[in-house]
Simulated scan of single mutants.
Amino acid sequence: MPMYILSNDEVQTFHNDGYVIVRNLFSAEEINKLYSLATGDDVVKNNAFDLNDQTGKKTKLTLWFKPGNDLYSLLIRSERMVYSAAKLLDSEAPVCHFHTKLMQKEPKVGGAWEWHQDYGYWYKNQFLFPDQLISIMVALTEANKENGCLQVIKGSHKLGRVNHGFAGEQVGADMVMVNHCLDTMEHVYVELQPGDALFFHSNLLHRSEANLSDRPRWSLISCYNSLSNPAYNDDSTAWKEPVQVVPDEMLMQSEAVGASNEGDFLRKENDPALKESGWEKEVETKL
Rank of each mutant, 00 (worst) to 15 (best):
residue 99 H to P: 06
residue 140 L to T: 01
residue 125 N to S: 11
residue 88 L to H: 02
residue 115 W to A: 02
residue 97 H to S: 10
residue 110 G to Y: 03
residue 114 E to S: 09
residue 148 G to W: 00
residue 122 W to D: 04
residue 151 Q to Y: 15
residue 152 V to H: 13
residue 142 E to C: 03
residue 115 W to I: 11
residue 141 T to L: 02
residue 116 H to W: 04
residue 80 R to W: 11
residue 156 S to I: 00
residue 163 N to W: 07
residue 133 L to D: 05
residue 132 Q to E: 14
residue 129 F to T: 06
residue 143 A to T: 01
residue 113 W to K: 06
residue 154 K to S: 14
residue 161 R to T: 15
residue 80 R to H: 03
residue 141 T to A: 09
residue 83 Y to V: 04
residue 116 H to T: 06
residue 150 L to N: 07
residue 88 L to K: 01
residue 143 A to L: 09
residue 127 F to I: 05
residue 102 L to N: 12
residue 101 K to Q: 12
residue 130 P to H: 03
residue 100 T to E: 08
residue 155 G to N: 08
residue 168 G to H: 14
residue 140 L to R: 02
residue 124 K to C: 09
residue 108 K to V: 14
residue 120 G to E: 05
residue 87 K to W: 04
residue 91 S to K: 00
residue 127 F to C: 09
residue 152 V to C: 06
residue 155 G to F: 08
residue 153 I to F: 13
residue 136 I to Y: 01
residue 84 S to P: 08
residue 104 Q to W: 11
residue 152 V to G: 05
residue 81 M to F: 12
residue 108 K to Y: 13
residue 78 S to I: 01
residue 151 Q to H: 07
residue 129 F to E: 09
residue 90 D to C: 10
residue 110 G to K: 05
residue 147 N to H: 00
residue 160 G to F: 02
residue 137 M to R: 01
residue 102 L to I: 11
residue 102 L to R: 03
residue 100 T to K: 10
residue 92 E to W: 05
residue 117 Q to H: 01
residue 98 F to W: 14
residue 110 G to I: 08
residue 117 Q to K: 00
residue 115 W to Y: 11
residue 89 L to D: 00
residue 101 K to I: 13
residue 96 C to T: 00
residue 139 A to P: 00
residue 102 L to M: 06
residue 122 W to H: 03
residue 164 H to L: 10
residue 168 G to Y: 15
residue 120 G to T: 00
residue 160 G to L: 09
residue 157 H to P: 12
residue 126 Q to K: 15
residue 144 N to S: 11
residue 103 M to K: 01
residue 141 T to N: 02
residue 132 Q to T: 11
residue 87 K to G: 08
residue 115 W to H: 07
residue 159 L to T: 14
residue 137 M to E: 10
residue 154 K to N: 11
residue 149 C to D: 07
residue 145 K to E: 15
residue 98 F to E: 03
residue 79 E to I: 00
residue 101 K to W: 08
residue 112 A to C: 12
residue 164 H to Q: 10
residue 149 C to R: 00
residue 135 S to R: 06
residue 158 K to R: 14
residue 158 K to C: 07
residue 115 W to R: 03
residue 95 V to Q: 02
residue 121 Y to S: 03
residue 142 E to H: 10
residue 78 S to K: 10
residue 119 Y to M: 09
residue 123 Y to G: 02
residue 124 K to H: 13
residue 102 L to C: 07
residue 105 K to F: 08
residue 163 N to G: 14
residue 148 G to C: 04
residue 78 S to T: 00
residue 165 G to C: 05
residue 117 Q to A: 04
residue 103 M to P: 04
residue 100 T to F: 06
